[in-house]
Simulated scan of single mutants.
Amino acid sequence: MPLPVVAGVDGSPESLAAAQWAAREAERRDRPLRLVHAPDPHALPYGGRSTAAARPLRAAEERVRAAVPDVPLTAEQVAGPAAAALLTAAGQAELLVLGSRGLTGPAGFLVGSVALGVVARATRPVVLVRAEEQPEDEHLPTDDGGASTGCREVVLGLDVQDPCDEVIEFAFEAALARRARLRVVHAWRPPSALGLGPGEVALVDDPFRADEWQGFVSAVLQVWRDKYPDVEVRQTVVREKATTALVRAASGAGLLVVGRRIADRPALARTGPVTHAVIHHVACPVAVVPHR
């Protein structure tokens, strides 16, 4: 039986947007959709807890049925703290989709704490979706300002010094499913003069260094171009901070794909500085793919 696409819902606008995005993704992947909600019993009104707990699932199910009526759908409440319940659901999913407000101040950080905790510990891909995400946002604009049938490009953040098959494959599969172009972004920084030895200072401004990085990126991608000949690939190599490059590249994109290394010890789980930054500053959906 194929693994489902799972969406965590809590009744918030961002979780409803996530449920609708997850439904479209499930349809693209020919997978069932599973909506899960872990109610907080302390936050529910006394005497009407079962009714109140069911409202987020009903709202999400109505949103999904209206947008993607043919996707196979199940909806259920799950027990336990939200983060733990979502991690369990993610372990049984093709991917997990959550709503995210991003870091918009102290309140935004607190609202997103569950999503951040799940991203840092999940062993399956997690996609974060903003409340403002609309179905038409996935499509390229037309000359008259409408939405075309073509999908916006998928952006992959690639570290050629540590390329990860799981992350690259996820990005190629996402682009293939959307019939979208894949833009691969690698950012590099020149070595600090303080770390160079005698006679190596000229390497800081080496005019050929960018061409070398282009060659490294091309070498890493060649096997994937051969495996996915129907995916149009554009590669971008820039000399700047990775976060800056990815935020700019993701402007106008349909999906950004980044990686996260799985920690050997759960207590040390974290998203990593680049992934943490783009989660908060990129407007399009962000897929965080764990890898060893």
Rank of each mutant, 00 (worst) to 15 (best):
L3F: 12
V6S: 04
A7F: 03
A7K: 07
D10M: 09
P13E: 12
E14N: 07
S15D: 09
A17G: 04
W21D: 07
R24T: 14
R28N: 08
R28Y: 05
R29E: 09
R29V: 02
D30R: 13
D30L: 08
L35R: 12
P45F: 03
R49Q: 12
S50C: 01
A53I: 06
A54Y: 01
A54T: 04
E62G: 12
R63Q: 14
V64E: 12
D70A: 15
L73F: 06
E76S: 14
E76F: 03
Q77H: 10
Q77R: 15
V78P: 01
V78I: 07
A82P: 14
A83G: 00
A89S: 08
A93F: 02
L95F: 04
V97T: 04
L98T: 01
G99W: 10
P106V: 10
P106E: 07
A107Y: 05
G108A: 06
V111K: 11
S113D: 02
L116H: 07
V119E: 00
R121V: 06
L128W: 08
L128R: 11
E136F: 01
H139Q: 10
D143N: 02
D144P: 01
G145A: 00
G146W: 03
G150N: 02
C151D: 12
V155D: 03
P163D: 09
D165H: 11
I168G: 13
I168Y: 14
A171C: 11
A171L: 10
F172C: 06
R179Y: 00
A180H: 07
W188D: 00
R189W: 05
R189H: 08
P190M: 02
P191K: 00
G195C: 02
D211Y: 08
A219C: 08
Q222W: 05
V223A: 15
V223T: 14
D230E: 13
V231G: 05
V233D: 03
V233A: 06
T236I: 01
E240P: 09
E240C: 14
T243F: 04
A250S: 11
L255A: 11
V257S: 07
V258K: 11
G259K: 06
D264K: 15
R265N: 13
R265G: 06
P266Y: 06
L268R: 15
A269M: 04
V274Q: 13
V278F: 07
